[in-house]
Design a protein around this nucleic acid. Structure first.
Lengths: 228, 228
DNA sequence: GTCAACACTATTGTCGAATATCTTACGATC
DNA sequence: GATCGTAAGATATTCGACAATAGTGTTGAC
């Protein structure tokens, strides 16, 4: 997959940022990252510049790179934008998608539900997230707009980062079962080709996520401040 | 502005890509770029990685970077997305913008028109483009969504790249005077706070651009193929 | 006791050399 | 004559050392 060393580090660092390995606001020292990913400085910096362009890290000239801080305002902003793009993309998918597309959606949800059942421990969370991403990606996969998908991906990364912040005292198991029902309802509406219903369900689904994040964000505010 | 050497190269290379200094499809050899921008390999590669993330260059593992090819389908795709984002951003701007915002819009159009009158030669084109960008940016500047603006910027870069392709036998002077009228109409609708009218005018304005590009794209197809 | 200038340390950013990969040209084989 | 393999050259990528900048703590003056 990764053709070059910089690609490899990009993927690993991207995954670690998604799973919240580093705290928001944390200074990503090159010495630390070089040890973690066992690499030289050049490919590391190249990966960091790509991530900076995607706003998954923030670069300050001569002061290196940091994990972006989190804010309720930002996740609201990102979600409102994602709603707009997701709705458009799903609408187009429902319009253009064929049987084959439907099959990929059904398969993706099946995979996701399997992961939901067997999800235990942290490794399971990574797998669940990968399948969750794949399901949402499948939904809009027939929109026939590479750029819409690209923008969608950029925003999905951001919401995943917020969603996977380490909140204390949250029953993740219950949460995951709740969204499973929502996914099923979205898929049913999609298969019935009811665009209005499907898009409004999807929009509400995103709304639920941002509510979940905002309800818990007070806890992580402490973490943010404490970050060195 | 540019805090570091890599930032400087990023800005210069970005500007050169915008003004079509390199042909679509052209292989951007590091040896060439090092001479052009008088720099070492490290900051150059960092800039290229950032540009690759914005899809202003394309990186192939172990085969370096290239200027993206152009296609009618892609500019259509980009424009349809830009219409969606621009409309939303302008609508919000009209809703939230205050007198100060109106003033920046009026000032930006004034600057643009001045550049339109005095535009002669290539240097003038750069200045005109900068002011054109600033005007459109001012229109949506009050939308109060940093992410919407960010996405807008990414797409604006793409459309500018297509728009500034070197088409043969086009009366650029006439073109620029035509769009001046459109800009005026958009601004008037904005100042009257007529959101529906303003957004549909803006949407049509983008449509005109893509039509202009598509009408001329046959000429550059030759250039694309010839690019080494 | 406070503030500012200075030196020192930590860290980032950049350069040139070495390594790995790709491309092309050439020749052998079918 | 075409195709495959191989070797040489060109190019991209990565490594380690150097230079430049920011951060920090200390000293000294007022």
């Amino acid at each position: 997959m990764a053709e070059t060393g910089a690609d490899r580090i990009y993927e690993l660092l991207h995954a670690d940022l998604m799973r919240g390995r580093f705290e928001p606001g944390q200074h990503l020292r090159s010495s630390l990252l070089r040890e973690v990913y066992e690499c030289g400085i050049s490919p590391l910096r190249e990966a960091l510049h790509r991530l900076a362009s995607e706003k998954l890290v923030i670069g300050h000239g001569h002061r290196g790179f940091r994990v972006p801080p989190i804010s309720g305002e930002e996740i609201r902003d990102i979600t409102s934008l994602r709603q707009m793009l997701d709705i458009e993309a799903l609408r187009r998918s429902i319009e253009y998608g064929d049987d084959e597309w439907e099959a990929t959606v059904v398969a993706a949800l099946h995979r996701l539900n399997k992961a939901t059942i067997s999800m235990t421990g942290d490794g399971g969370a990574d797998e669940w997230e990968a399948r969750h991403r794949a399901f949402h990606r499948a939904l809009i996969g027939a929109c026939e707009s590479p750029w819409l998908i690209h923008m969608y991906d950029l925003l999905y990364d951001q919401t995943e980062r917020y969603r996977r912040l380490r909140f204390s005292g949250t029953d993740r198991g219950k949460l995951v079962r709740d969204v499973a029902r929502e996914h099923k309802k979205i898929m049913d509406a999609v298969l019935e080709r009811r665009a209005d219903k499907a898009t409004s369900l999807l929009s509400a689904h995103l709304e639920d996520t941002v509510r979940y994040v905002l309800a818990n964000i007070g806890n992580v505010a402490l973490v943010t401040d404490a970050a060195e």
